[in-house]
Design a protein around this nucleic acid. Sequence first.
DNA 1: TTCGATGTTCGTGAAACATCGAACAAGCTA
DNA 2: TAGCTTGTTCGATGTTTCACGAACATCGAA
Lengths: 106, 106
Amino acid sequence: MSLTGVMGALSDPIRVGLVRLLADGRERGWGELRAPVAKSTLSHHLRVLRDAGLTRTRQEGTRCYVELRRADLHERFPGLLQAVLSAAEDEDVGSQVGLADTPPPQ
Amino acid sequence: MSLTGVMGALSDPIRVGLVRLLADGRERGWGELRAPVAKSTLSHHLRVLRDAGLTRTRQEGTRCYVELRRADLHERFPGLLQAVLSAAEDEDVGSQVGLADTPPPQ
DNA sequence: TTCGATGTTCGTGAAACATCGAACAAGCTA
DNA sequence: TAGCTTGTTCGATGTTTCACGAACATCGAA
């Protein structure tokens, strides 16, 4: 989890949107995520986030679950997440990313 | 000065080094800056920082002076600069960038 | 005006990135 | 076993980024 890696990961609106979505700390199923890109592209973005250390991915059977590593993030870069989240909200960055109508499939 | 722009600008070690150097708020002449790249490349990085809104450049005769836009940065992204600076120090990011032996030519 | 110093811009090339569709692998389920 | 769902991986493609040297522009000094 390096500084430049994290910065690079956050330099794309889709990834910022994913971070915003996960910012509440809840784990999300892959199927819930909605972004205006092909699924292979979404897979790519999630991999970038994971490689940068921003998220953690858990596989369960054929499904994947993503979670923001808030604690680690806060320990390594105190204040960063908050700064990013408020700026993203102000500028409306990443709002193209959302959740499926069907809430958590339980 | 957009979130993703700033993040992208900070995703390169040389640029982080420049920001660290300018973090004390003092204006620096280009001639003082030392980085392990060609001058055209340094010019490029300084342009990226300027375009992202992180710095301000002033031209005086044949010389250029750079300055970090700390106030604007703090207003737009409170806490971000601090987070970046401490992380950069911890990881020793951008330490390749330094000042010339000759201090401010004046 | 000629020279030297200082940056910018240009042309180029290598690498990285974003994106897509198609092919693939792995589990469930019928 | 066959089929469906889910997500990853694999080219392919076009764009952006980083880097360099060379050429250019500008200014002050000789």
